[in-house]
Design a binder for these strands. Structure first.
Lengths: 201, 201
DNA sequence: CTACGTACCGAACGTTTGTTACGCACCTGT
DNA sequence: ACAGGTGCGTAACAAACGTTCGGTACGTAG
């Protein structure tokens, strides 16, 4: 577990302990002492690497975002609708790790809504995420895999569905197992095929 | 503001102060003193009506759920798809009050994920909500307004979209004004029309 | 008039919080 | 050998927390 001599690696260890504490006790239960205990160390270590709690949290969330951004590299080749599907399923809480990470994110929303700084950071993250989804949407449209419509709006729809799926799965894990989540995602993606704007009759 | 002599009314006043505090400072900033200050009273008043903080938040959330359950009575007549649309828009943060209430709910997720008791209550609430949506879905299917598919799954899809729309609108209110929210909802509901299960080819 | 329960304030309790400061054990260069 | 910086534990700090409690005002029943 320890990574001696490496300053950044040590900060990563601390941030991972933050994730674990938040995932189990929420941001309400996130204290310097809890992080230190989770790490099997003292509060002195924590404050040594992060002078204040705000910086602690900021780095932990930044690192979490960075990690989720880098992870999808595991499904590199797959343009259009397939990439969209991969992007959604990559976020969904289908396994233990994803559940823990999503718990961190959902819990962080309390902080993000109350603190302007964190809120702006979150908003920026999600704007960037929607932009990425919009690119996949446009690709899928070019390949004729999904119907017409403003890519930005469709990306917002996909983002909304994904976030909502996450929250429901977190609150009711038994009703939303991995299989049902996948089924719901596929059903939703299917509904994009005929998604032409209702220029009715 | 005060409702003298009426015990329950007073508890309601306190709970509304809780909402206001949570909406602006989050659950992290929810303290007995903050509630008392918001109410223009002393902590003695708060503890008089709620012996502990846990009971305080429990009643505040229960009352909030009760209030959102009763409110849709304003759009009574409208079966099928129209009822579904009303149910979704009724939750969406399209005005100041709805924004404040949704802030309370999203913030409460931190607590719900950490505390088993609150988590179970939340899960039950959302299960009931999905059941209500499923009824509208089934109605709409009978009237031929939307495509086939398991009503429970379609209701979960609607619930997911709605929750996700809420979170995105809360974090980026400028990008998700009332008009765009309505447009996104209508676009999404449109996509349900052809939602037959992909028994492909 | 008296007695008593309700409503509420204000202060205090002990605990927990974030943060700061002190001190020891290394390592590294000279 | 020795000086100095880094890593980290320990202990303390003031502030803020949830909760408890004595005291006052007011109504109502006897």
């Amino acid at each position: 577990m320890p990574a001696k001599g490496d300053h950044d690696a040590r900060r990563r260890d601390v941030s991972e302990a933050v994730w674990r504490v938040v995932a189990t006790a929420g941001f309400t239960g996130l204290t310097m002492r809890a992080v230190a205990a989770e790490l099997g160390a003292s509060t002195g270590l924590v404050t040594h690497y992060f002078p204040s709690k705000a910086l602690l949290v900021r780095h932990a969330l930044d690192l979490a975002a960075e990690r989720t951004d880098e992870r999808p590299l595991r499904t590199p080749e797959a343009p259009g609708l397939a990439a969209l599907r991969a992007a959604v399923l990559d976020v969904a809480p289908v396994d233990g790790d994803a559940v823990a990470m999503n718990r961190v994110w959902v819990s962080s929303w309390d902080l993000a809504l109350a603190d302007a700084g964190f809120g702006a950071a979150q908003a920026a993250r999600y704007t960037r995420w929607r932009a990425k989804l919009a690119r996949h949407v446009a690709d899928a449209q070019e390949r004729g895999e999904i119907g017409a419509g403003d890519p930005a709006d469709l990306a917002a729809r996909v983002a909304a569905f994904t976030h909502g799926l996450v929250t429901q799965a977190l609150f009711d894990p038994e009703a939303f197992g991995a299989a049902r989540q996948e089924r719901l995602v596929d059903g939703f993606l299917d509904s994009l095929r005929a998604g032409a704007p209702a220029r009715d009759s």
